[in-house]
Nucleic acid binder design. Sequence first.
DNA 1: GGATTGCTCAAGCATTCGCTTTAGTATCTG
DNA 2: CAGATACTAAAGCGAATGCTTGAGCAATCC
Lengths: 111, 111
Amino acid sequence: MLEQSTADPLDRVFAALSDPARRGMVERLSAGPASATQLAADHTMTLSAVVQHLKVLEASGLVTSHKTGRVRTFTVEPEALGPAQRWIEDRKRAWHRDLDRLEDLLRQQAP
Amino acid sequence: MLEQSTADPLDRVFAALSDPARRGMVERLSAGPASATQLAADHTMTLSAVVQHLKVLEASGLVTSHKTGRVRTFTVEPEALGPAQRWIEDRKRAWHRDLDRLEDLLRQQAP
DNA sequence: GGATTGCTCAAGCATTCGCTTTAGTATCTG
DNA sequence: CAGATACTAAAGCGAATGCTTGAGCAATCC
């Protein structure tokens, strides 16, 4: 059994995106796949730290990776953004629905 | 001078959304404003804890609040979701752009 | 075969997070 | 005025985060 932790995938996606370094890596990867060392070149921190960030991204599903020889190549997985995007859109929709209902009430109250 | 911390607003919005309790509060507030105690009723944790979550949400700009008498009322601020939504959409766009470019290359290579 | 490269693993450490408990301070209610 | 109510502020604590350093190991280069 793969210990997949009980957390909502949304938790992991939003948490992954809350770090500027990780967002940077996703941005970089949206322009095409890259290796860990290539990704590390953009940052001042250790390769070790970069790899740890990449693990967080992979755990969230935002990127996948496969190893060929000694280099591990990372690819962005835009599908994983879907739930987050949908959650945000749902909030906006719900809010507008509420606004409209309020307007109706006001219109009835003071016609 | 208001000590506003140097973090990117995106950091704070995504971080705020990474907690299910806080997302729950935003969902609740999308249906209309509510007080701290009303919001606390939905959760098993202390009012104190709920208030701390609400502070995080307010610091991110996702909600605002104003106090009348002894009750503080919270309102959702859907505008604050804009940057996050845009960031996500930009990623998807960038990725598709890259895909298209790749297809072009393949088409040229093997016509 | 020996050095270099690209990553992996584990330990350690300071900081931040998510909570609780405790102790207030206004505000409203009877 | 005596509660009860609605929050506020602060201290404390265990767990999670974001790093670093150091040590290793397989793939590649000369």
